[in-house]
C-alpha cells in the first residue's frame, strides 16, 4: 500500500513539473525536430513521402469537387468571351495549317536525311498521365502533388510536361504519390537551349511567375520572343521540350515566361526517358512498370 502511495506522490510531482515546464518542453521538442530534420535528411525524406502517401487519397477526394467548381467558373468566363475567342481560334487555325504543311515537308526531309546518315535516335520516352491532387504552393515553394508514384514507374528527376510545355520535374516519390517541383520554384535549375541561336544556358526559378536566364555566354544574342527549349543535358530530360519564351531583356537580366499556365493545371504527363541521371536524388531507377498505366509513345 505504502509503495503505491509513494508512486502516486512521485507521479503527481512529475505531472506538476511537466505542466509547469510544458511550454519549454514543447519548444525544445520543436527545435529538436528541426535539428533532426537538418541532420538526417534521408529520414525527413522518408517521413515526407509517407505523409504524402497517406494524405493523397484524402486530397484526391477534395480535389475532384474543387476541379469541377474551377471548371464551371472557367466555363462561365469563357462563355462571356466566346465570340472573340472564336475569331482568334479561326485565325490561329489558318496559321497552324500553314505550319502543318511546313512540318510535313520537313518531317519527310528529316526522315530521308536520317536514313542517309544512319542516325541513331536517343532512348524512346514513355508517358505516365497523372492527375494533380494537391497544390504545394506557399510563400516558399512552387510545386504540386500527383496521384502517381513508384508503383507505375515514376522516379525522381523525371520531366513533367503539359500540352503547352515543360511544367517541372519530380522531386519526391511515394508509393502512390509524388511531388513536382515547378520550373518557377526557387530550387529549380534547368539546362536549356535558346532555340534560335542554339546557345546553352541555365534557366532558374525564383518563386515568381517569370524565370531568369543565367550562365549564358553571350547575352547580346538573345531577343524578346526567342523560344527556350530543354537542352537534354544532365540526361534525364528529353531534348527540345518547349519551356517558355523570352519576354524581357534589360541590363543583362533575361526574363522568360513559361508556356505552362500553372494556375490551371489539372492533368500532366510524367516523361520517363529511360535514364534517370544526374538530376535525380541518387535513387536507383525502378524496374519498368508492369504495363497498364504507362503508355509508350510512338
Amino acid at each position: 500500500m505504502a509503495i503505491r502511495d509513494d508512486f502516486e506522490v512521485v507521479a503527481g510531482q512529475v505531472r506538476t513539473v511537466v505542466q509547469r515546464f510544458a511550454l519549454g518542453l514543447l519548444v525544445i521538442a520543436a527545435f529538436g525536430i528541426m535539428l533532426v530534420g537538418k541532420a538526417d535528411t534521408v529520414l525527413v525524406e522518408h517521413a515526407r513521402v509517407l505523409a504524402l502517401d497517406v494524405a493523397s487519397p484524402v486530397l484526391e477526394a477534395i480535389a475532384r469537387p474543387a476541379a469541377y467548381a474551377n471548371r464551371a467558373i472557367a466555363d462561365l468566363r469563357e462563355f462571356a468571351s466566346l465570340r472573340d475567342e472564336n475569331a482568334r481560334l479561326r485565325e490561329e487555325n489558318t496559321r497552324l495549317l500553314a505550319w502543318q504543311t511546313a512540318a510535313r515537308r520537313l518531317e519527310n526531309e528529316n526522315e530521308g536525311l536520317r536514313s542517309l546518315a544512319k542516325f541513331r535516335e536517343g532512348p524512346e520516352a514513355s508517358f505516365i498521365t497523372a492527375r494533380l491532387v494537391g497544390d504545394s504552393v506557399s510563400a516558399y515553394m512552387r510545386g504540386a502533388l500527383l496521384n502517381v508514384g513508384r508503383r507505375v514507374g515514376v522516379a525522381p528527376g523525371q520531366a513533367v510536361v503539359t500540352g503547352e510545355g515543360l511544367a517541372g520535374r519530380i522531386a519526391e516519390v511515394g508509393e502512390n504519390s509524388s511531388r513536382v517541383l515547378f520550373v518557377t520554384d526557387v530550387n529549380s535549375r534547368l539546362p536549356i537551349l535558346v532555340e534560335r541561336t542554339r546557345e546553352q544556358a541555365i534557366l532558374a526559378g525564383d518563386n515568381s511567375p517569370r524565370l531568369r536566364l543565367t550562365l549564358l555566354q553571350g547575352v547580346a544574342g538573345v531577343q524578346a520572343g526567342d523560344r527556350i527549349v530543354t537542352s537534354g543535358r544532365g540526361g534525364s530530360f528529353p531534348v527540345g521540350i518547349p519551356v517558355g519564351e523570352v519576354v524581357e531583356t534589360s541590363d543583362g537580366i533575361i526574363r522568360v515566361r513559361p508556356f505552362t499556365d500553372f494556375s490551371r493545371l489539372e492533368f500532366v504527363r510524367v516523361v520517363d526517358y529511360g535514364v534517370t541521371g544526374l538530376v535525380g536524388t541518387g535513387a536507383p531507377a525502378p524496374p519498368p512498370p508492369p504495363g497498364g498505366t504507362a503508355v509508350r509513345s510512338r
Binding site: A30, A51, L52, A171, D185
Partner: peptide, 13 residues
C-alpha cells in the same frame, strides 16, 4: 511542414 515543405525547408517550424 512535411506536406507543404519543399526540399530543404525546415520541418518543425
Amino acid at each position: 511542414d512535411l506536406l507543404l515543405g519543399g526540399p530543404g525547408a525546415p520541418v518543425g517550424v
